[in-house]
Design a protein around this nucleic acid. Structure first.
Lengths: 215, 215
DNA sequence: AATTTTCTCATCCATTCGATGGAGAATGGA
DNA sequence: TCCATTCTCCATCGAATGGATGAGAAAATT
C-alpha cells in the first residue's frame, strides 16, 4: 500500500464528528488528519493540512459549507470534497455539487458506503446517489428565481400579505403581485401557500427555530 | 465505584450511533450495553437488556421515539429516557417529555454535557436545557388542536384550497372554514400561509422530502 | 446598437378566505 | 340523571385579497 488517504472532517456536531472519526479510524489506508467545527476553521485547517479528501457538512456556523468549497476550490481545483448532510431536499446540495463537490452522502449511510465513496472520490471518480441524481435532473428543467422574486418569496414564507410585502420591499403592491405571479410559475405551484411550503421543502428558504429566515 | 451505568442507544443514523458509543466508551462508570436502529428493535432491546438509561432519537423508522417511550414507560415507570434530537422546534419533544423522558439534548452538545446529563438522570433528576424550558413554558398557554383541526392543517400545508379540503375530508367548505378559523386562533396566526409555516416550524406536521406528509 | 431579462406599475375581476352565529352529537363531571 | 363543556358540522355575509394580463422603463447581455 502507498500513503494513506488523508482526511479532513468538517462538521459542527461533536457526536457526528466523533462517529466519523471512529468509523474511519479502523479502516486501513485512511487517516483522519484534522477536524473543524465551523466554516472559518475549515478553510484554515485545509490550508495547513492539504488533505486528500474533505468530508464536509453544509450547515455550518460562521461560513456555509458551500462557501468553504467555493473558496478553496477557486484556488486549488484539485481539492476533493464529499458532502455530508441530513436532509435530501436541500437546495444547497446542488450548489455544492456545482461548486465542485464530488460526492454526496446522507448521514444515515452505512460505514462501507462511506469508505467506498471515499476510495472512489480519491481515485478521481464522482459518486452521486441515484436519489439525488434524480432530483438533480428534475431541477435542471426548473428556471431560477430572480433576486427580487426570491425576496418576495421569503416574505411570503414569513406570512406577509401582498400589501405588507410592498411596504417591506418598498415597491407597489401591484409589483409584488407580478413577482408572485412569475415565481408561482417557476415553482410550478398555483398559490402562495403552496409556494411557501415548496420553498421550505426545496431549501430555497430556511426557517430558523426562532422564526427568522436565513440566506 | 458501584456498578457502571448501563446504557442503550436508540438512533437510526449509523454515524451518530458510532459517535455516541465512541464518546461513552472512554467514560468511567458507563457502559453501552446495546444499540437499536429503529423503534421496534428499541422495545425488544430494552426488554431484554433493562438498561439504566436509554438515549433515544425521536425520528425513527418503524415506530417513533415517542411511541417507544410511551410503550415502555406504561409498564415500567422507572425507565429513564434521554431524548436526542437535531431540531429544537419539534413538537415531539413536548410529547416525549410528557411521556416521561427526563432530559433533552441537542446532537450538537459537547461530550461533558452528555456525560453529566446521564449522571444526573441516573441520579433521578431531570435535565431540561433553558432553551427548551423556555419554549415549553410558552407552549403551555397554547391550546391543543383537535383531531379535525389537525386534519385541516395538514391539508393547508399541502397547499389545498378550502373547497378541495372539503372534498378531501368529505365535509362542507363552510365547515372547513370553521376549523381554519379556530386553528388560526390557537396557533396565534392570521392566515393560512402563516399557519402552514408555523405548522412546519413547530413540527405539527412534517414534510417528507417527497412532498408527502407524516404523522 | 439591438435584444433579452428584470423590475416596475395600473387595472380588472372574482374567487377565495376569514368572521360570526348557531345547531346537534358526544363526552365527562357533578 | 342532568348539566356543562367540547367537538364537529353547516349557512350566510362581506370584502379583502390574491392572481391574471398587458405594458412601459431600466439594466444587462449579445
Amino acid at each position: 500500500m502507498n500513503h494513506p488517504i488523508r482526511i479532513l472532517i468538517v462538521e459542527d456536531h461533536h457526536v457526528v464528528r466523533q462517529g466519523l472519526a471512529a468509523l474511519l479510524s479502523v479502516v486501513d489506508g485512511m487517516q483522519v488528519v484534522g477536524e473543524a467545527a465551523d466554516g472559518e476553521a475549515a478553510v484554515a485547517q485545509w490550508n495547513s493540512l492539504r488533505p486528500d479528501i474533505t468530508l464536509i457538512d453544509l450547515r455550518l456556523p460562521r461560513r456555509s459549507g458551500v462557501e468553504v468549497i467555493q473558496m478553496i476550490r477557486r484556488r486549488e481545483a484539485y481539492a476533493r470534497f464529499i458532502v455530508l448532510t441530513t436532509f435530501d431536499g436541500d437546495e444547497d446540495i446542488y450548489r455544492a455539487l456545482q461548486a465542485g463537490a464530488r460526492a454526496y452522502l446522507l448521514k444515515g449511510m452505512t460505514a462501507d458506503v462511506l469508505v467506498s465513496t471515499i476510495r472512489q472520490v480519491h481515485a478521481g471518480k464522482s459518486c452521486i446517489p441515484p436519489v439525488i441524481a434524480q432530483k438533480l435532473a428534475e431541477r435542471m428543467g426548473a428556471e431560477e428565481l430572480t433576486h427580487r422574486e426570491q425576496d418576495v418569496l421569503e416574505q411570503i414564507v414569513r406570512g406577509k400579505s401582498n400589501k405588507e410585502i410592498g411596504v417591506e420591499l418598498d415597491i407597489s403592491e401591484a409589483t409584488v403581485k407580478t413577482h408572485i405571479n412569475s415565481l408561482l410559475g417557476k415553482l410550478g405551484v398555483s398559490d402562495r401557500t403552496q409556494a411557501a411550503t415548496a420553498a421550505i421543502q426545496r431549501g430555497l428558504v430556511q426557517l430558523d427555530s426562532t422564526g427568522d429566515l436565513r440566506r
